[in-house]
Design a protein around this nucleic acid. Structure first.
Lengths: 229, 229
DNA sequence: ATTTTACGGTTACCCGGATCACAGAAATGG
DNA sequence: CCATTTCTGTGATCCGGGTAACCGTAAAAT
């Protein structure tokens, strides 16, 4: 379940193994942070990595929580760009470190390599655009419902007749994922729980009624009907 | 000024010319729209293209207004993804049409090709993340100020001691670019004009005081000082 | 030249959600 | 084991900005 099943990363893994060193991080390690300039991107071999922006005021926006097979730090592969986000290991994590020059050299003889990286990149691009769209069009409750479903898909495991999200997560972190405040997230989660959509305890959420939750996620914020315009 | 000067697209142009047909669109033409499935991406040779999302309710969010040398429709290059946005020609526009299979074949013998496309793609990715960040962290006035400066950089031309934005644009369209409503954009523009930062007429905006406007763009919405936390 | 449509300007009102301010409960660490 | 920190729960209050409802004016259509 860790990797949606749709991505054939095995080949890529072999390719990377051939010319990339593996680097390891421990829980809480900062892999990089903004304004650094370096020339290495990463593909996750094992573990989880959080990408996030930090505002001057300390507010945080999480761009993604990535698992095995995901590419990140890709900006380093071309141009002179500095890092723009923080990347933090959420647990014991190992990554292939793709050094820019190495990659470009290697790509000449192994053209498929770039195509596979391109694929991973487009996947991230697609997710980012989706986030942008939701932030503008959907209200907080909808966004949170969607996020819970996404987490279920990525990290969910069925047990005792419900989908437990195997990711230690706080309300604060959820808020940072959906672009809201901790207080509002807590309120909405409690609402969901009262309605029997989810069950929760500290650091832990389980989806008890995915179908119903999906409805909440699809509904548009304010209107039930706009026949014509 | 059309193309920031930083991108060496000339080489890419030659590459594309070698195996891509050129397709033309007229002002208002829809190049593609969501849920279509096809396998061609575009690089703009001449003209301007707007990428946007349309909500069920008719609300619009503009992702980007692209000019010469920009890549779009790139999702079509891998996977089975359907189109997710609308792409519309804002004026007489010509594009190289990059057919997926052709590209992949060509890439084998011309490895640089993918690298250059990758570069264009990362540029878009970077802009998208920037937008996301602004939407969460900055208020409408700040976002609008930034957008005006961006438009100035891309489409501005100095004349009569001010930077005229050579892009016919309505308040509605500006609103769709910054994620706000037409009414509020009108109000803020008038405020900017009263303060002498910009000058405007129908369909037309000029920046009269870029420095001052930049300050408005950088300021955070609510606090002047947060010494420690 | 007149009608029609689209854009720009402005107000009053309202609501989602941020802020602020606590309090209890569960972990963590000396 | 107690003390401190970290999370969660819940109110009161406030505000940015969306919604609705106009009107004047410039442009486009016939």
């Amino acid at each position: 379940m860790e990797n949606g099943g749709s991505t054939p990363i095995r080949e890529l893994e072999e390719e990377l193994a051939a010319f990339c060193p593996v680097v390891s991080f421990r829980e809480g390690d900062l892999i990089y942070s903004p304004y650094q300039q370096d020339t290495v991107a990463y593909v996750i071999q094992r573990g989880r990595v959080k990408l996030y922006h930090l505002d001057e005021s300390g507010k945080k926006l999480t761009l993604a929580i990535l698992g095995e097979g995901s590419l990140f730090g890709e900006m380093a592969l071309v141009g002179e760009e500095l890092r723009q986000t923080n990347a933090e290991a959420l647990e014991e994590t190992a990554c292939w470190a793709i050094e820019r020059e190495q990659l470009l050299a290697r790509a000449k003889s192994h053209p498929d390599l770039l195509v596979q990286l391109l694929e991973l990149l487009l996947q991230r691009m697609s997710e980012t655009q989706q986030r942008l769209k939701e932030l503008v069009f959907k209200d907080l409750e909808t966004r949170l419902a969607r996020m819970l479903l996404q987490l279920m898909n990525k990290y969910g495991r069925k047990r005792h007749g419900r989908w437990e999200i195997e990711l230690k997560i706080t309300h604060q972190e959820l808020a940072e994922l959906v672009g809201g405040t901790r207080e509002n997230v807590t309120m909405i989660l409690n609402r969901f729980e009262e309605e029997g959509l989810i069950a929760k305890q500290r650091f832990q959420i389980a989806i008890t009624d995915p179908e119903q939750l999906s409805k909440r996620a699809a509904l548009d914020s304010l209107k039930e009907r706009v026949s014509e315009n």
